[in-house]
Design a protein around this nucleic acid. Structure first.
Length: 492
RNA sequence: CGGGAUGUAGCGUAGUCCGGUCAUCGCGCCUGGUUUGGGACCAGGAGGUCGCAAGUUCGAAUCUUGCCAUCCCGACCA
């Protein structure tokens, strides 16, 4: 038997790492800070991609692809963006290797192949894309441009963690160009809504939508909107961001259009993205000490069937029955796996599929054959029921829907019971240390205060929630007046 | 980039202080058999440049030096 996974309460980050590795989602690679996403993990990511991509298409976007490399001169153009990302960029300086004259069998970068202009491996693609948009836009008739790309980016992080922070990660980045500020702002909000809907309806992860403070804004943006989710250790995870870029990139890359009135104006932009980090959110939001818990909508295998048999003859009988059920389930679009391998015993398989988060497990043995039943186990609650085969497909369909809703409700209830209103700084600190979670508190609106609180408590303002009611109060640190509460938490 | 630690089979490890039948054990893997309703058992078997490179020595996993990599704690961050 495999060693037990460390429990969540014991060591949350070790628990997380073990789940990711043992559920076969990803592993560390030979490349520092970079992971290998394994087939099972990648299947989940593909399902996420599919769902998101459909939503992007529904909102009028199309996919395109831009280069991995950004010439340094382009990268520099938008000053704030460049400054924000400069310290985590991989830089290509040479285009050729040659045999090392001093060490046989080794290679060195050929000094004669030094690039005239260094290439930056994109940490994000605004620069290349806006430089391209410049050529595409002359008139208001060319607008809006609504493009998304699925890509990899590199941000040279000091400390990495599987999915949550890797030096290279996969994501999508939407980049849109508009004739008016209002339209760009509407786009920014629309895409945040798309992300929120995806997180809640597909991942089963409730999120809080809000504005980032200027401190936490994307480098080069006028406004950053985000969704914040709570993980089971009470920490916050930024799950997606949507940026209103104003005319910053248009000005940096000189992207102008002639309006209906014949006036030359700078284009308004947005960008928005979610990454493989969502995989981390998925794991940390729902899973338990027995392993992964996947929402049915994103589970590569929704139903697994385990036969329990004593003889080949018995297995054959069970298989016949199972195949009928499988074909019915598949007709309903449910993905099913029949694990009839003889390599492991049923008990081993039960544990294995729990580890991998398969939402529903069916077990069928001689007893069931006799009674016309099957044992149905749900992963989220670990409840087991013996159910009549008659009507089993409808039963499972309903169960999958129910599991999808249940894990969302559970996560929501967890977040609500770990969200507090606090009006006193000492209590604020005490709550953070004792319970973590989200804290709604008053803030005087200054960066200095935000910085100071971060320094002293490691908590940051995750967002200024859209739905924060107007409420007179005093800043927990300075006592200065405030008109609404903001969301504080320690974050990933 | 500062502080700490670690590199031994696919994974996890013992041995390193005190150099000499020391390459240990568990999981996994292969073969055969018995098993199969919550991580089976027995028997046999395969698998190693002891992170890399120099050095000391009759002899190095063990001592010395250099390098590389990874992890943890900070600083930085989607």
């Amino acid at each position: 038997m495999a060693n037990a996974i460390p429990s969540r309460s014991e060591n949350y980050s070790e628990w997380y790492n073990e789940i990711v590795k043992r559920a076969d989602l990803a592993e560390n690679s030979a490349v520092r800070g970079c992971m290998v996403i394994k087939p099972y993990g990648y299947s989940i990511w593909e399902k996420m991609q599919r769902a998101l991509d459909d939503m992007f298409k529904e909102t009028g976007h199309t996919n395109a692809y831009f280069p991995l490399f950004v010439p340094k001169s382009l990268f520099e153009a938008e000053e704030k963006n460049a400054e924000g990302f400069a310290k985590e960029c991989a830089v290509v300086t040479h285009y050729r290797l040659k045999a090392d004259p001093n060490k046989p069998g080794k290679l060195i970068a050929d000094p004669d192949s030094k690039l005239e202009e260094e290439l930056i491996v994109r940490p994000t693609s605004e620069a290349v894309i806006w430089n391209t948009y410049k050529n595409w836009i002359q008139s208001y008739r060319n607008l809006p441009i609504l493009i998304n790309q699925w890509a990899n980016v590199v941000r040279w992080e000091m400390r990495t963690r599987l999915f949550l922070r890797t030096a290279e990660f996969l994501w999508q980045e939407g980049h849109t160009a508009h004739a008016t500020s209002d339209e760009a702002m509407a786009e920014t909000r629309q895409m945040l809504e798309v992300y929120a809907r995806f997180a809640e309806e597909w991942m089963g992860v409730p999120v809080i939508k809000g504005y980032k403070t200027p401190n936490e804004r994307f480098a080069g943006a006028e406004e950053t909107l985000c969704i914040e989710a709570m993980m089971q250790d009470g920490k916050a995870l930024q799950a997606g961001t949507s940026h209103f870029l104003g005319q910053n990139f248009a000005k940096a890359f000189d992207v102008k259009f002639q309006s209906k009135a014949g006036v030359l104006e700078y284009v308004w932009g947005t960008s928005w993205g979610v990454s493989t980090r969502l995989m981390g959110a998925l794991v940390m939001a729902h899973s338990d000490d027995a392993g992964l818990i996947l929402p049915p909508k994103l589970a590569p295998i929704q139903v697994v069937i385990v036969p329990i048999y004593r003889s080949d003859e018995q297995l054959a009988q069970i298989s016949d029955k199972v195949k009928e059920i499988m074909s019915e389930l598949r007709k309903k679009g449910i993905s099913v796996k029949f694990d009839d391998s003889d390599a492991n015993k049923p008990g081993w398989k039960f544990a294995e599929y729990e580890l991998r988060g398969v939402p529903v497990r069916l077990a069928m043995g001689a007893r069931d054959l006799e009674n016309g039943t099957v044992e149905v186990a749900r992963r989220d609650t670990k409840e087991k029921n013996t159910v009549a085969l008659e009507g089993i497909v409808a039963y499972i369909e309903e169960l999958l829907t129910e599991i999808q809703q249940n894990i969302y409700k559970r996560a929501l209830a967890f977040r609500e019971s770990n969200t507090y209103k606090v009006d006193d700084y000492e209590e604020f600190k005490r709550m953070l240390d004792a319970k973590g979670g989200f804290i709604l508190a008053h803030w005087d609106g200054t960066s200095e205060t935000e910085e100071k609180i971060k320094e002293e408590t490691k908590a940051t303002i995750r967002c200024i929630p859209f739905d924060a009611p107007h409420e007179e109060g005093k800043c927990i640190l300075t006592g200065k007046p405030s008109s609404q509460r903001v969301l504080f938490a320690r974050a990933y």
